[in-house]
Every structure is written in C-alpha cells, then in structure tokens.
Design a protein around this nucleic acid. Structure first.
Lengths: 206, 206, 206, 206
DNA sequence: AATGAATGAGGATTCATTCAT
DNA sequence: GATGAATGAATCCTCATTCAT
C-alpha cells in the first residue's frame, strides 16, 4: 500500500520557502502591470490573479495596499540610486534616468509628491521615504554651483515641477514635455533612459 | 418587482420649486467641502448628505460624477477668466490669481493636467475644456516677448510645473513652494490672492 | 475612498472550500423558489438571502442575472433531453414531460419563446440556446409522418402555442388547458409528468 | 395698470377642463410609444415626459401603473369590438383584426393571458376585464358549428395559443407565425389588418 | 504556506410617489 | 389643474479581508 493523500481533494502544492520568494516577486511584477492598466486603485484581487497566486498570499507578503505600491516603486528608486552611485555618474545623467521613470509611470510621479493624490490611495508614510531616497541620491552628485543648489528646497521643487509637466497619453509625448520643463528650468539633462537598460522592458506603472 | 416606497411613514418636507436653485448651490458647496476632505473620489452620497438633500437631487442636477466636479471647478476657472478680463489686468496679476487657486485646492491643480489621476476619477472631457479656458484667459494677456510666449506649449507646461510644485499640508507652505517654482522659471508673479476677494472664504477643494 | 470592512465585529463563519459546490446548489434551489414567488425579475439579493449566502457568492458563481436563470432552467431542459434519450422513448411521452414543465413554471414557458418578456429580463442569448436544445430533443423522436413534421417551423410553433395556452393560478388548471391545446392541435400527448419523478418535488419556477 | 401675475415666477398655464382631456389623450399616446420602446416596465416618468406633462398629471388621470396600461390596451380592444359589431362582420374577419393586434404589440398579447407576466407588471384585474370583452366580441359571431364552438373554453384557449406563437423581431415574421398557428388549429382567418385602417399608424405597444 | 470561497459593507443609480407652489 | 423638484428605499455590483481546508 503506497501512501495516500489525506483527502481525495487535490491540495494546492506547498512549494516551500523558495516558492515564497518567487511569489513575492511575481506579485510585484503583477502589481506593476496591473497598476499600469488600471491605476493605483486597481483591485488587489486583480494583482493576485495576475501573479497566479491566491489572495491570501498577497496579504502574507504585504500588510496593506500601500505596501504593494511601495514594493513596486522601490525598484524604480533603487535604479536611480544605482545610477547615482555608478562610477562616472554625473547629475545630468541621473536627471535623465529620473526623467525616464517620471515619464514611464505616473505612479512614480505621484510618489515624489509624497502626498496629495497618492496619500489618498493609502500610500502614506512609505512615500516620503522613497522621496527622501531620491533626494539623497541626487544631492550626492549636485555640484555646489548648480542652478538647483542655491536654495535648499529648489532641487526637489524642480523635480516636482518636472513631474507636474509630465502628462499625456504616450511616453514619447510625456518625454517631450519633461524635456521642455527642464529647459524652462535651465537645467541640463542627459539621455532619458533606464539605468543599464535593466528595466527597459518593465511596463509603466500607471 | 417594481419599486415600493416601502413604508407609509411620513415623507420629509418637499420644499417646493424654489428650493431647486438653492439645492443646486448647496450641492456645489457641499461638493467643494467634501472634495477637500476626501478627494475627488469621495462618495456622491457624502456630498448629498452634506448638502442636506436626498441622493436623487444630486442626480437631478448633475448627470454624473464628472458634472459635479466640473460645477465646482467651474467657479475657480470663472474667477481666473474674470481676473484676466478686468480692466488694467496684466499677466503677472492673473498668474497670481491662478496661483491662489492652485494653492487653494489640489483638485483644481489636477484639472489643469486634464488627464492622469483626474481622468481616473471620471472627469475626463470636461477637464480639458476647463484647462482650455484657463489657457485662453492667460494668453489674452501674454505679451509677445514674454518668456513663456516663445514656444507654443511653454505656457501651459509652466502652469503644470507650478501645479506640480504645489504640495504640502498648509496653503501657506504650498504658496511658498509655488512662488519658488515661478522664480525658478524666471516668471514674475503678482500677489497670490483670489480675484476681488470674492471667494476668499471658499474652503479648499482637496 | 477605498472600501473598509467597516467594523471589527466578528465575521460569520467561513465554511471552507467544500461549501462552494453546496452553495451553488443552494443558490439554484433558492432561485427556483424565488422565481416562483416573484418572477424572473426578482432581486438577486432575495435569491442570495434565501440561499443563506452573501451577495458576493451569487456573483462568484453566476456572472449575471441571466446565468442564474439559465442554471435553473437548465435542469428542466436537461430532464426533457433525458426523457427523449431514454430507451423506448416516444414523442408523445416526451411531449408529456415537456408539458409537465410548461405547466410547472411560467419561467420555463417564457424561455421557449426565447424573446419577448424573457429578453427584457436579460435572459437573451442563453434562452435561445435552451430553446434549441428542446427542439433538438423533440426532433430526434418526431416521426416523418407526424402532424408537426410537415413544415419546418411547425414543431416549435406548436410548442409555443401550448405555452401560450398555459395560464391560470394552479398547476392543475394549467394542465387542463395545455391538454386542451394539444387536442386542438390534434397531437397526441402522453402522461403529463416529470421524467423519472426525479424532480417531482421541485417548486414551480414562476 | 394692467393685472400682474401674482409672482414673478412663471406659473405653468392652467388650461382648464379642455386641457385635462387633451392631457389624458397625450398620456395614452405617449404610453403606447414608450411601451413600444421600453416594454411594460418603462418608468412612468418617461411616459409623462413624452406626453409633455408633469408627473403629477399622470397620477391625476391614472391611479396606478396598471391603469395606464389598461387605457392603452383599451383602444385595441375597442377596435376589435367595433370590428365585430360592424355590419357584415364575420368571425374570420374579426380573427384577422385580432391577429393584427396580436402581431402588432406583445403587450396586447400578454393582456389576453390576463395573468402571468402581465400580472407581474401590476396589470391585474383590469386585464381579465379586457380579455372578457374580446371573448364576448368574438363569441357574438362564432357560428355554432365552428371548430372552436364545441367546448366552452376552446375559443379563448385558441386565442391564447395564437398569442403564444406570436414571437419574433418583426411584425411580418410574427404575422407569418400567427397564420401558421391558425392553420395548425384548422381555423380560417381573414386578412390581418387593423379595423378601418383607423389605427394603422399606431405604434406597436411593446 | 497556499488556496480561493465567503462575507457583507459601501457606493452608484433608478424610480414611484408626494406635495409646495 | 399643472408642474416638476425632492425623497429615499431598493437594487445592483464590487472588493477588502478573513479563514477553513
């Protein structure tokens, strides 16, 4: 007599620790896609479904709606940090990477505001942390004589301004407007692109 | 299965035909307040409740969610138009009035984007109309040699940029940031105030 | 404005995965009863309530109002199909079973019309599928020299005619009228009864 | 000084007795059209609106939903009565007129059932009265040796059967099916047409 | 650890009916 | 007599969240 499963119901496979990490990654990827299609208010069930996991798994990995969004945006911020930390990085180049993400996803744009509409979606505290990381990354490369180094707040105000200018249905249009914004600010920007191309295939967030 | 009034309980007062206009006004005022507290996604029932009317009244006056928001924002836009049409108006002064409204309500800010988050709230078509009215009002006063008159899109991109900069918990803080934004743009702005002070007591939108 | 579970009150029992099939069956049974009492326009909430489940469960199992009705009527049609497929079946016997269902539930009657009032209830496409299944079942047994085999449409027109005759407050009365109708058509009908008695206890649909 | 209206509000004209009758007629006409487009469940407000009167007027003339429907159908029945009372009328001719109305409006069909779906729409008692009038009109012309004169109920059962057969999207198709039904019943029918052509332009009911 | 069914509150929307004017 | 605004109950449908398995 060989072993029998306890019941005749098929029990969902328990794939162990490894699967847990894989599930988390799948959720973040799925969330990125879903946000892109339906916005930050998309039903969490849609994210779980697209990730191919049960609803419960989502709750296991993320305590609330905000945590999911943060996890998604975290990748964008991390990329900016890496761009800033890369050997030979200069501020114009990082502005270019930043601009890429701004034009890529309006959700990312909102996070930099760290309040307003984003706050409404329940992305509260996490957001300003992300915003702070972006600021630190930029400031490490900002020369003292840069146009945005004069007043303390100018740097992030300028970033917010560019974010504000980034509207329109296509990324190309948004990029055009973002570049016009930087030009109006008199700030030089490098090529608008993801860092390392590593996220080139990423769908936009929103 | 037709609807029944369910009970023969007494029916609250019918305030007659005169009340119609008053109710509409009450709804707009209530909407302004509710938007301020809960954002553009606030339940319509909350607006009706705050206005002290039944749900049906809201639907009688406004066919959909967008119409409510439009009615609210329309007052802000109208004020900018009046400011631009006033004798002796100059572009800096109107920028000041515009900035007042930008700092007063984030909902108004969103409308100028005419897409993105606002579109999500179902404010789509109306929004761009309002945005167009603002642009026309500004452009009538824009001198040919103005910094924002060079490229066709610069004017509204600049407005969007200032909108982007307008974040923060208090109006005063938002005004400070807005003025910093205009300064970074190299654009002169008059006093930040409502036109005629007529709407000074208005609660912020969002 | 995201949804809240509103209270931390205790949440009624989750009966686990096994209950799913049981719930679906309960919904179909409840729907049958509710349709019988209130007609095909009965509120879906009434069906869920009678089935002892939340509203969401109904939507989980049936995407829309039509799917519920179809599930209910499907059992009636299936019984006619089984009657037609039974060894030794003859057309008169199947007419008898058909007539049983016609007298049992006016909802079933309507489905055979496959339009009109039924269409209004939003049962559109499904209905004609069910009607087609009845036709196919009957036609397999229809002798070439049968009175209703002459013209292509006569069979289902006759069925519709009997359906039309089936009115009145009690099933017995409806049966009497149905038999009179078949007699006027000159068509022989077997005993009016459910097939196998298996659904004898079913409440009427409408 | 000429007389002034009591208030500066425009008061709706009170057109007196004459207008009352005109309003009633307008309501019946409007109801006929609205039923044709939206079915018997159409909102009463739609009927009032199409008639160009306030909601209150509808309630003044008709106590409930059923009364409206009855008033509409009354005209159809009256026409059948006139056809039966016309000099030289014969039963086949009246069947033709009856069939015209059956194919013209499914609402009329339902009324002849005097229960079922119609009852649900709240057309209760009135309906059987109308049905009775049709029966009396037909029976005055029914020869004793007519196929439908043998058993007492056969006449109206046959009418109901034809009603049952009358389905399909176009009047022409419905007429074809109705004629097939009469043929299956072995009953001769005259030309399918309105009486006197007087109501030829009437929109169908449903 | 995962699944995914169930719950049920919440929000949108529609209409029958009343009633001040 | 007529108008048409207002009421608010009822229904539909969606989702966040829990929890038995």
């Amino acid at each position: 007599m060989t072993q029998q499963p306890a019941s005749d119901e098929r029990r969902p496979a328990n794939n162990g620790r490894k699967a847990a990490a894989r599930n988390r990654a799948a959720l973040v990827t799925a969330a990125r896609q879903v946000y892109a299609e339906y916005g930050l208010d998309a039903p969490l069930s849609a994210i779980a479904r697209r990730a191919g996991v049960g609803q419960g798994v989502l709750y296991r990995h993320f305590p609330d709606r905000a945590a999911v969004a943060t996890a998604v945006l975290d990748e964008n911020v991390a990329q900016i940090e890496r761009a800033a930390a890369a050997p030979g990085a200069d501020i114009a180049g990082v502005f270019g990477v930043l601009t890429w993400h701004q034009t890529q996803s309006t959700a990312f744009v909102n996070i930099l505001h760290a309040d307003g509409a984003v706050a409404r979606s329940g992305i509260p505290a996490y957001a300003s942390a992300l915003s702070g990381r972006v600021e630190r990354a930029l400031r490490t490369l900002l020369p003292d004589d840069h146009r945005l180094a004069a007043a303390k707040d100018d740097l992030m105000i300028a970033v917010a301004m560019v974010s504000g200018s980034v509207t329109g249905p296509t990324r190309e249009l948004r990029e055009r407007r973002a570049l016009a914004a930087w030009r109006l600010l008199g700030v030089e920007v490098g090529p608008v692109r993801p860092f390392d191309g590593e996220e080139g295939g990423q769908p936009p967030l929103d």
